[in-house]
Design a protein around this nucleic acid. Structure first.
Length: 827
RNA sequence: GCGGAGAUGCCGGAGUGGUCAAACGGGACAGGCUUAGGACCUGUUAGCUUAGUGCUUACCUAGGUUCGAAUCCUAGUCUCCGCACCA
């Protein structure tokens, strides 16, 4: 059945076409009109297309943008595609299709599907990051970064995913695994790679988090990710050379009895004495053989290197070990060890019989070096610490640091977990890094006027990065000396592309510049950003960094733009009816097309946001969607027989309350509550309403169900677009709490009547009439609602005031009257 | 281990000191409409009790604060998420 004769599909197509043809969602800068930049994280166009989960994401944003637009904001609401990336390349290798062809087909499909959802994007601004017109600017920015030292090349221990066949940034390693392959251990390799100096902005990235209206958990994640800690850098002399270590406990320096260097330390072998070499090497071999996940639960182990260090505090000679529990890339990859006051050091010392020396005395207990069960890590008073004895540990931290500083043996230092961003990738489908290697000139940037360095299309896929074997691409002349040189074959991490795409939307077709400063100054920053929490420590950090870097490179002139996204909202995940996250590969995906065919896409949109608060995970249910369907059908039926009348004060009250609620619910992404309020309002419309009230209802409904709302608006005889109408504004004077009181009274009455009705009927008496006895001043409450009482009880209703003479009251029920509670009699 | 979120009736899920046996939706049940089914309309959906009353038990568990707790505090259990030997 075409669901009650409502042909949703043709209504949808009709309005999507009209919206598109009349370009009503296209935006330009308008002086004097308040702008609103609403943005959803752009998708990676996967070949499998959209399912309901994606539809949910975009619907959340669309509802918001639609309301803002109706509220009179000049809304920028664009869409684009993060179209470089590994999956396309892998699919290409697997199926023999070129990544470009594969990607562009996927994009075409995405666009078609997104249009079918009725999303109010300004399609004229669409961007595709795999197009030279876009990635040219990636290269441009990279060169600017290079010029300012924000991009650099360095050999370092890096993460390598054997499945992706490329290195990964720190942010892309999740629990030791590749972010794309949860079954694949990331390996550590020492490679020369390109980095972006994100750590230059560690402090600003950390400190400005507080100014953002973001979900607190995202803020906390970023804080933890940056992981600032204050401490002291101390130099230990080994073989006549000073080696730095970082510690947050300089107060325990007199308790240092050994040192441990990371097994992955780049200069480890310099510390290994020849007679210990074999032992160390077999230890390293063992570590390499253990899996990352086992490594984490591993007992602390190590091997003596044969070297000794000198403790600068007391000139004691202490052994240097290589160990499996020291991180190579935090601090200096080497630690001083105080077994008495650090649990890890304690375990290590016990295992290898290294001496334990107490230097902190707790306030409330006495410790003994000989029979310590665990390290004491709390504060206390210094002992065995030379001239620092008697100080409290907090004080001692300061004093010892100062003493070391004065002897140039240490200094105050802030340490971060945050790493520079490794951006080079050994893969084809990405932005070529615009650099040339010349044997005599070294690293030479490609001159700006030669940009873009185009990604060659005809390449051979097979082993490794196809660019490496592409002679025409690789072999170039050095721009400086003109001699034969080699072009960089690594491409950029696609997070580079997504770090500035929100800026490009402001001026997406500019061929002279990445963006025009005036346009950016009008639109930026993004007022509302919407996307998943999975980007907390990836895209959302990179984009913040990029904005700051571009600011300092002068790209924003004098504008004060330093944070890209003012407000962030994380929508929940859509789960399939089996309870698992909806995905094609799991086979629990529901396709928008199917739902649209059966119920109309407005039904799907409505249902998606009705179930729960949009920030929570929700579960698709086929029964649930029928409920939304029923509501929409009722609305359609109502309008098809609509005759305007007068709106009574009660409905006015409800209307204005609803306007107020819906507006603030949408503003706060509590769409589920907004839908409830709209549904409740609808129940009042049956009482008879004038044109304005009816139209207001449609306006409130329209962000959720834009197609049918637009259609019904049109059927009311309007020639304009509902999507561009003014959002209703509450008239507080029409809100009167008395009406709610009245409603409750009526509900109470009906409750009572049904109660009595059941009792009476269970006694075998048949009743059909309801007599109500009220206080004289309350009579109106019931006569006003006569129809409703009749409808809900199914009885004939008679209302008397207790003072009425000659009323029918055989059992004298009128004596039961209380304020707000009438007497009732059934017969 | 550290950090964050959460646990509500048959289910999903609102509610964050009284107006709460707890919105709204779904499901189930009953009645109406209908030749019948569907759809639609009305009601019920913790238990007992009653001509509309009263009582008991209820918002993870156990305590506490309060005249009063789903809501505040303390302890615990469980679930989910992020980071994970960060010195």
């Amino acid at each position: 059945m075409a669901e009650h004769g409502h042909n949703f599909k043709s209504i949808e197509q009709k309005w999507q076409k009209k919206w598109e043809n009349s370009k009503i969602f296209q935006t330009k800068e308008k002086k004097g009109v308040r702008k609103f930049y609403s943005l959803e994280m752009y998708p990676y166009p996967s070949g499998t297309g959209l399912h309901m989960g994606h539809a949910f994401n975009y619907t959340v944003g669309d509802i918001f943008a639609r309301m803002k637009r109706m509220q009179g904001f000049n809304v920028l609401y664009p869409m684009g595609y993060d179209s470089f990336g590994l999956p396309a390349e892998n699919a290409a290798i697997k199926n023999g299709v070129h990544p470009k062809k594969y990607t562009e087909k996927a994009i075409a499909n995405f666009i078609k599907q997104q249009k079918n959802l009725g999303l109010s994007y300004d399609w004229s601004r669409v961007i595709f990051t795999h197009k030279p017109e876009y990635y040219k600017w990636n290269q441009y920015f990279f060169l600017k970064f290079l010029e300012k030292g924000l991009a650099y090349r360095k050999k370092a221990p890096v993460n390598w995913c054997p499945k992706c066949q490329t290195v990964l940034a720190n942010e892309q390693v999740h629990q030791g695994k590749c972010w794309r392959h949860q079954d694949t251990e990331v390996e550590t390799k020492n490679l020369e790679q390109w980095f972006i100096r994100t750590t230059k902005y560690s402090d600003e990235l950390l400190d400005k988090i507080h100014s953002l209206q973001w979900p607190s958990r995202i803020k906390i994640m970023q804080e933890n990710w940056i992981g600032r800690s204050e401490g002291t850098e101390i130099f230990f002399e080994i073989k006549g050379e000073k080696w730095p270590i970082f510690t947050t406990r300089p107060d325990t320096i007199f308790g240092v009895t050994f040192m441990v260097v990371s097994s992955q330390h780049l200069r480890l072998m310099e510390l290994v004495k020849p007679d210990q070499k074999d032992k160390v090497e077999s230890f390293l071999k063992k570590i390499r053989a253990t899996k990352q996940e086992d490594l984490e639960n591993l007992e602390k182990e190590g091997v003596f290197t044969g070297s000794y260090a000198v403790n600068p505090a007391n000139n004691e000679k202490i052994p240097v070990y290589v160990g499996n529990f020291v991180l190579a890339d935090y601090g200096s990859g080497m630690v001083m060890c105080v077994p008495a006051h650090d649990q890890r050091d304690f375990e290590f010392a016990k295992k290898y019989n290294i001496s334990i020396k107490l230097v902190i005395k707790p306030k409330d207990k006495v410790l003994n070096e000989k029979n310590l069960d665990e390290a004491y890590t709390g504060p206390g008073i210094l002992i065995n610490s030379g001239s620092f004895n008697g100080l409290f540990s907090e004080q001692a931290k300061e004093k010892i640091t100062k003493a070391l500083e004065s002897k140039k043996q240490g200094r105050r230092r802030t340490q971060y977990k945050f790493r520079d961003w490794l951006v080079s990738r050994q893969r084809y489908w990405g932005t070529p890094i615009p650099v040339i290697y010349c044997s005599s000139c070294g690293i030479v940037p490609v001159p700006e006027k030669e940009l873009p360095v185009k990604l060659p299309e005809k390449v051979k896929f097979g082993k490794g990065n196809p660019l490496e074997t592409e002679e025409k691409f690789v072999n170039v002349k050095c721009p400086k000396c003109g001699n034969r040189a080699r072009r960089e074959t690594d491409t950029m991490d696609t997070f580079f592309d997504s770090s500035w795409y929100y800026l490009r939307y402001c001026d997406s077709k500019n061929s002279k510049k990445p963006f025009d400063i005036k346009k950016v100054s009008y639109w930026m920053p993004v007022d509302q950003y919407i996307g998943g929490a999975e980007h907390a420590t990836m895209h959302l950090i990179y984009a913040r960094f990029f904005t700051k870097a571009l600011r300092d490179l002068g790209f924003f002139g004098n504008l004060k733009i330093d944070e890209p996204f003012l407000r962030l909202f994380n929508q929940g995940m859509l789960h399939g009816s089996d309870g698992f996250v909806m995905s094609k590969s799991r086979g629990n995906d529901v396709l928008p097309e199917e739902v649209s065919e059966k119920y109309g896409i407005d039904t799907a949109r409505l249902f998606l946001v009705s179930m729960a608060s949009t920030d929570k995970d929700i579960r698709w249910s086929d029964e649930g969607v029928e409920g939304s369907m029923r509501f929409i059908s009722k609305v359609m039926d109502f309008f098809s027989r609509k005759k305007f009348g007068k709106t009574d004060a009660r409905t006015e009250n409800k209307l204005n309350k609803t306007i107020k609620e819906v507006t603030s619910y949408i503003e706060n992404f509590q769409y589920n509550l907004a839908v409830i309020a709209i549904r409740e309002l609808f129940n009042y419309l049956e009482n008879g309403t004038d044109r304005k009230t009816t139209e207001t209802f449609l306006k409130l409904l329209s962000p959720f169900c834009p197609h049918i709302s637009e259609e019904l608006w049109h059927r009311l005889g309007n020639k304009t677009f509902l999507s561009l109408q003014k959002w209703p504004v509450v008239d507080e004077r029409k809100i009167n709490p008395e009406f709610e009181k009245e409603e409750k009274t009526v509900d109470g009455l009906i409750n009572d009547v049904n109660n009595v009705f059941n009792i009476v009927r269970s006694k075998g008496k048949d009743v059909s009439k309801l007599y109500i006895y009220t206080l004289p001043n309350e009579k109106n409450t019931y006569t006003n609602n006569l129809n409703e009482i009749k409808k809900r009880t199914g009885l004939g209703v008679f209302v008397y005031s207790v003072s009425d003479k000659g009323k029918h009251d055989p059992e004298n029920k009128s004596k039961k009257v209380k304020p707000g509670k009438p007497g009732i009699y059934l017969e």
